[in-house]
Computed example of a mutant assay.
Amino acid sequence: MSTGRARVLLVAFTRHHDDVRVRRLVRALARTSDVTTAGYGPAVSGALRHVTLGPADSPHPPATAVATGWLARGVSPLLRSAAARTTAATLAGDRWDVVVAVGVDTLPVARHLADGAAVWADVRAWPDAGAHGPFAPLERDALLRVLHEDLPRCAAVTAASGALADLVRREVPGLEPDVVVVQDTWPRAELAPTPVGDPIRLVRAGAARANAGLETTVEAVRTLGAGWSLDLLLVPGSDDAVLRRLHERTAELAQVRILPAPEPDDLPAALHGYDVATWWVPPTTTQACAALPSFLLAAVQARCAVAVGPAAQAERLVRSYGLGAVAVDVFAATCAASVRRLGRDGIAAAKERADAAAGELSRGADDTRLTGVLDRLRLG
């Protein structure tokens, strides 16, 4: 492959503007490559060309709707989704040096369009993530089939956390080259820990979606009572009912506010000034246990303490760096007790430890690994 600027296609069936991982990958790739992207909403900074699969507020339909017959015939339903068809039709005949598939659901169309180019699979979530409703088992089975059949044919594989990389290695043994961990870290923020507030300020940021522990978080703060507050910084999800229920549940709870999420790049600065970032997500799926949310890594840059439930990767982060509290389950009373035990002194100490860890948990090392993957593919 040429040592000049590479022609890179990045496909992610998400709203790119709100997708921290996509924004980060595009910016990194654009330093040495001409990047074309395909996804929902407008282009993000660094994309030379963008294929819009729908407006930013488009619901992302299940990849496998009415797919039973396709699976039975051995045809990947992921090539039959509207997003895949639009991507394939718009970019047919274009030539690439590297095709980056962000998410397992994009791998079939990425390999279809690569036509001999190197395919880089970025495994950002395990196939059980977000699988709900009547087509959930079929969607999960289709994604697992892609994982087993397509991943070994990729020239590079990255994963969003160490636990996720371990899962990939266990499910798809013998991958060559090995899975490279590229976490959703942030640039080191030149911030200092703030004094613990009165009330103690809890925060949670992310999408307003079901099964994300948001109602548990509200109930935990209700249990904590006076002296504690909570801000939910939320992006509307695909189900409006989730946000509506949260507003109803918090209507008489003065210590809880529901606010719009900040712009993605502004998250660490927006979290600065809070005391504890909470992530009490039920560990009911493989993905929930393996995920290391960018929100928690942003909280470290904001010098917040961190409180999580018993999800393996998030728990590992908190325990490894002494960042705060780990609840043994995600019942509201247990979550409340875990942060109450920290107390003001424990929260202040955890914020200082976040400050000490901010350099190690910043973007530098992950960017080096990401650049190394691209350089190997460009020169290979």
Rank of each mutant, 00 (worst) to 15 (best):
V11N: 00
R15S: 00
H16A: 15
H17C: 05
R21K: 13
R24M: 06
L25C: 11
R31V: 01
R31D: 06
R31E: 08
R31Q: 00
V35S: 02
T37V: 08
A43F: 07
R49C: 13
H50Y: 09
G54T: 05
P55Y: 04
D57E: 15
S58C: 15
P59F: 00
H60C: 07
P77N: 02
L79S: 10
L79C: 06
R80N: 02
A82L: 12
T86Q: 07
T90C: 03
G93N: 12
D94T: 14
R95M: 07
V99F: 11
V99Q: 09
A101D: 01
L107P: 03
A110I: 13
H112S: 09
H112W: 04
V119H: 04
D128L: 04
A129N: 04
A131I: 02
L138I: 12
A142C: 03
L147H: 05
E149D: 15
E149M: 05
A155M: 02
T158F: 07
A159T: 06
A160S: 15
L164Q: 07
L167N: 06
V172Q: 03
P173D: 13
V182G: 06
D184W: 00
A189F: 01
P193Y: 12
P199D: 10
I200D: 12
I200W: 09
R201G: 05
L202W: 06
A210K: 00
T217L: 11
V218F: 12
E219N: 11
V221M: 07
V221L: 13
T223E: 15
L224M: 12
G225V: 08
G225P: 13
G227W: 13
W228Y: 13
D231K: 08
D240S: 11
L243I: 04
R245K: 09
Q255T: 14
I258E: 01
L259F: 00
P260M: 02
P260H: 01
P262R: 12
L267D: 01
G273M: 14
W279S: 10
W279V: 03
V281A: 00
P282C: 13
P283N: 03
T285A: 10
T286E: 04
T286P: 01
A288L: 08
C289P: 03
L292Y: 05
A298N: 02
A299S: 05
A305R: 05
A307P: 03
P310G: 11
A312C: 02
E315R: 15
V318K: 11
Y321K: 06
L323M: 09
G324M: 03
G324I: 08
A327K: 09
V330K: 07
T334E: 07
A337M: 02
A348R: 15
A349L: 05
S362P: 05
R363W: 02
T368C: 14
R369D: 10
R369G: 01
T371R: 14
V373Y: 01
R376K: 02
G380I: 14
